[in-house]
């Protein structure tokens, strides 16, 4: 793909057109920094040294994830706008509206986890799920987890919600005019994002790098995280190939009329239970 000709439409807004792939590409990788893929802190674990399995032990890791997700939308919107093509423009507009509606639901559903862990740090959230798999947050947060999963489908532009690039309607949506490695960057970012979001889902709800049973702790954390990521990537691809695409107005009504109220209810119930039990 690197050897393919990089075509830029003559009437495109060239600086923005060139910039857009990076705006999508970089946030996808930044989130990886705050993901714990093994134990952090505690006793020496590697040849007598202590090795933190996280790049940046950042207190507000969850906020960073949400923020980076929001920034990536700019990439899509700018790509759609700068291509100077009707299909791209429609794709960009759809992406913008879709992200706004689904990010709300996603944010609200994550707050439930945050309340239970009492922290915004992904490291603390994983530590909060210590023990066997019945301590993982997906059991108390089953509604929130489902909402989060659905919202990430929209965030990733996967099928029931892939209106931004809706192949059969908008040719390729915001990437219609892209070619060569710029197109490759978009695609690369999409799949990197899928891995990252799978990691986030497993970290928030499925114990991150922790083994499902404590007796299996002898298998290192990164392997468990890798397995969980694989499961979720499979799930995303499965859904993408089997489920129909929503129409635009239906997408909006699902987002605003179902997911958002449900996530708020989930948040309120979680908040009450957490405040009563603690």
């Amino acid at each position: 793909m690197l050897s393919k000709e990089d075509l830029i439409p003559s009437r495109a807004d060239k600086p923005v057109f060139r910039l857009a792939p990076y705006i999508i590409f970089i946030p996808a990788f930044v989130v990886m920094a705050v993901l714990p893929f093994g134990p952090v802190g505690g006793a020496p674990n590697l040849f007598g040294y202590r090795f933190d399995y996280v790049i940046a032990n950042f207190d507000a890791g969850l906020v960073l994830f949400l923020a980076m997700g929001a920034i990536a939308v700019y990439g899509i919107v700018l790509a759609g706008w700068s291509s100077n093509s009707n299909f791209s423009l429609l794709g960009g507009l759809r992406a913008g509206a879709q992200m706004i509606s689904y990010e709300l639901a996603m944010g609200f559903s994550v707050v439930g986890v945050m309340l239970m862990a009492g922290s915004l740090s992904l490291v603390d959230i994983v530590n909060g799920q210590a023990g066997n798999f019945w301590n993982w947050y997906f059991i108390p947060q089953v509604v929130g987890g489902l909402i989060f999963f659905v919202a990430t489908l929209a965030e990733l532009n996967r099928t029931p919600f892939d209106l931004a690039e809706a192949e059969q309607e908008l040719v390729a949506g915001y990437l219609t005019e892209y070619s060569g490695m710029r197109w490759g960057l978009f695609m690369f970012a999409e799949y990197v994002n899928m891995v990252v979001v799978s990691a986030i889902v497993s970290t928030l709800y499925f114990g991150g790098w922790r083994a499902p049973l404590t007796v299996l702790d002898f298998i290192p954390g990164p392997i468990w995280l890798f397995l969980k990521i694989c499961v979720f990537v499979f799930l995303y691809m499965w859904v993408r190939w089997t489920i129909f695409r929503y129409r635009y107005n239906q997408l909006m009504s699902v987002g605003w009329k179902i997911l958002l109220p449900l996530s708020i209810v989930n948040l309120v119930v979680t908040a009450i239970i957490v405040s009563v039990t603690s």
Binding site: P160, D162, A166, Q168, R240, W241, T242, R245
Partner: peptide, 10 residues
């Protein structure tokens, strides 16, 4: 027809 509505496996 089904592919036009977004499903590929079918």
């Amino acid at each position: 027809h089904i592919m036009d509505l977004g499903t590929q496996t079918f």
